[in-house]
Amino acid sequence: MNTLAFLLTQIVNALSQSALLFFLGVGLTLIFGLMRIVNFAHGALYMLGAFVGYSLTKWSGNYWVALAVAPVVVGLFGAAFEFAILRRLYRRDAHAFLMVTFGLALVVGEAVRLTWGPDALQVPAPDLLAGVMFILDEPFPLYRLFLVATGVIVAVAIWQFLERARLGLLIRATSQNADMASALGVDVKRVRSAVFGIGCGLAALGGVLAAPLVTASNGMAATVIIDAFVIVIIGGMGSFLGSLIGALLVGFVQVFGNYYLPDLALAFMYLVMLAILMVRPGGLLGKEA
């Protein structure tokens, strides 16, 4: 493989990895931006999305059904959890949210183990994306190109949703001043439920998309939750654009680090985070404390 072909394939690999990380990071940052909740269950919901996607694929025989339905199922579960549990805690100390969402992560993890068993489950990629294409005469999986395209489409869709949709405007208004938004007639409780559900659904979308690459396994939650928090810290808590930039940085560091210095790849990710925090303590696009 020549140098240019290698660089191009590695760059596309990094972009596909960044797309998966973006779904995690943007869901987490949407929840924090509005609700100031650090959702420790985010990785578990990512894992739940992968397993629900597995069952839907097996039941329907169609991966596209799983891709469309699993995020909705997990999103509705998240909205129901916010309505039943989190809504009672808004006037309490922030530590209450940490404990409750950590408890949710444990419950979801045990429920997944009891329902689907301890073994990793393979989710086949759709036939349409099972082949390869050639980049400078080098084969490259079509599925990874699909991940890149999906990441771009979802990023643009979320941006347009936040900028132009009525619910997006309500989310932005509520995140800036919930009391004023409530005084103007906005149902803040309903907006919070919607945002928590959307954030959980985005995590599940990442899980469904990752399953054909890494299989659906009980270890998925622990693997990705650290990456999700690193992305949000790098980009700035509550910043949509920051989560996108953070996902790109982490994705490229992981891919190139794992190739050149696999033993130090994780350390490089933390070094990037520390370097950014030394210059911008609130993250790249976050508000300074």
Rank of each mutant, 00 (worst) to 15 (best):
L48H: 08
G49N: 03
A50I: 02
A50W: 09
F51N: 03
F51V: 01
V52G: 02
Y54V: 06
Y54M: 03
Y54S: 03
Y54C: 01
S55K: 12
L56M: 11
K58C: 04
W59T: 11
S60T: 15
S60Q: 03
G61M: 07
G61R: 11
N62G: 03
N62L: 12
W64H: 05
V65E: 05
A66V: 02
A66K: 08
L67M: 10
L67V: 09
L67F: 13
A68D: 00
V69M: 01
A70M: 05
A70I: 00
A70E: 00
P71M: 11
V72S: 02
V73I: 15
V73F: 05
V73M: 07
V74T: 08
V74F: 09
V74Y: 07
V74L: 07
G75P: 07
L76Q: 03
F77S: 04
F77K: 00
G78I: 05
A79M: 14
A79I: 00
A80H: 08
A84G: 10
A84Q: 12
I85T: 08
I85F: 15
L86G: 13
R87L: 15
R87M: 14
R87E: 12
R88F: 13
L89P: 07
Y90F: 14
Y90G: 00
Y90A: 00
R91V: 02
R92G: 15
R92W: 04
D93L: 05
A94M: 08
H95M: 15
A96R: 05
A96Q: 13
F97P: 13
F97W: 07
M99F: 15
V100T: 15
F102W: 14
F102H: 08
G103E: 06
L104M: 12
A105C: 01
L106T: 08
L106S: 05
V107A: 05
